[in-house]
């Protein structure tokens, strides 16, 4: 990943900053320019909860480049408290430990490293609560 792209994503990667529509209150992560519910173009920044539940998940056994050493790992859709659903890895567990509905909390983790000399990309992952 290019450092510039990673840098642009820092507010949501580090602090779970989302956009909340000023008119209808719908929350978007990542933030959007136009609300798809009411077409409003004004948003307030809100921080998403670090608590949630596994909506559903899959087990990655053939990983994309940079993630091969982690297989098998769990990739889940997590319903955060407050109603936003995010895709994230579930760390520190085996595939057999995760169930639909498992309570999780969000932790700050390394997502990937660009080789041995590139930038280290941080972000969020879930762990079983």
């Amino acid at each position: 990943m290019q450092p510039q792209r990673y840098w642009r994503e820092i507010p949501r990667r580090y602090r779970l900053e989302a956009g909340k529509c000023r008119k209808c209150g719908k929350v978007f992560m990542p933030p959007r320019l136009i609300c798809d519910a009411c077409r409003c173009t004004e948003f307030d920044m809100v921080r998403l909860s670090d608590k949630g539940k596994v909506h559903t998940y899959t087990v990655i056994r053939i990983a994309p480049s940079g993630f091969g050493e982690q297989v098998p790992f769990v990739l889940a859709l997590v319903d955060l408290e407050g109603g936003v659903r995010l895709t994230m890895q579930v760390a520190d567990c085996g595939p057999e430990d995760v169930k639909i509905g498992s309570p999780v909390k969000v932790e700050f983790r390394k997502i990937n490293e660009v080789g041995k000399s590139g930038v280290i990309c941080y972000g969020y992952k879930a762990v079983l609560a």
Partner: peptide
Amino acid sequence: PSPDQDTITMAVEASR
């Protein structure tokens, strides 16, 4: 530490 943890990630969690 897990492979996705380092001094920075643990410092963030403790500081939060």
